[in-house]
Amino acid sequence: MFSKDNLFAVSLFPYLGFLWFLSRSQETPRLALIGFCVLLIFVAVTIPAGIYARVHYGAELANVDWLHGSAESFLTLSNILVALGFRQGIIEYQKRQQESKTND
Score class of each variant (00 low, 15 high):
K4Y: 08
K4V: 10
K4Q: 05
K4T: 06
D5W: 08
D5P: 01
L7I: 08
A9E: 05
V10Y: 14
S11Q: 07
S11H: 10
S11I: 00
S11Y: 02
L12S: 10
F18C: 02
F18L: 12
L19S: 11
L19T: 14
L19G: 15
F21M: 06
L22E: 12
S23G: 15
S23W: 14
S25D: 07
E27D: 11
T28N: 03
P29N: 10
P29W: 12
P29A: 14
L31F: 14
L33N: 11
G35M: 15
G35V: 15
F36C: 15
C37V: 14
L40E: 14
L40K: 15
I41G: 15
A44E: 07
V45D: 10
T46M: 11
I47W: 10
A49L: 10
I51E: 07
Y52N: 04
Y52S: 11
R54A: 11
R54K: 12
R54N: 11
H56Y: 04
H56W: 02
H56K: 12
Y57G: 00
G58Y: 10
A59E: 14
E60T: 03
L61K: 11
A62G: 06
N63Y: 13
D65K: 06
W66E: 01
L67M: 12
L67Y: 04
H68C: 02
G69V: 00
S70I: 00
S70M: 06
A71R: 04
A71F: 04
S73V: 07
S73N: 10
S73D: 06
T76L: 14
N79Y: 07
N79S: 14
I80N: 02
I80Q: 01
A83V: 13
L84Y: 07
L84S: 08
F86V: 09
F86C: 06
R87G: 10
R87H: 06
Q88S: 13
Q88W: 05
Q88G: 09
G89K: 01
I90S: 00
I90M: 03
I91M: 05
I91F: 03
Q97H: 02
Q97P: 01
Q97G: 01
Q98S: 04
Q98A: 13
E99T: 02
K101Q: 07
K101I: 09
T102Q: 08
T102C: 01
N103I: 06
N103L: 09
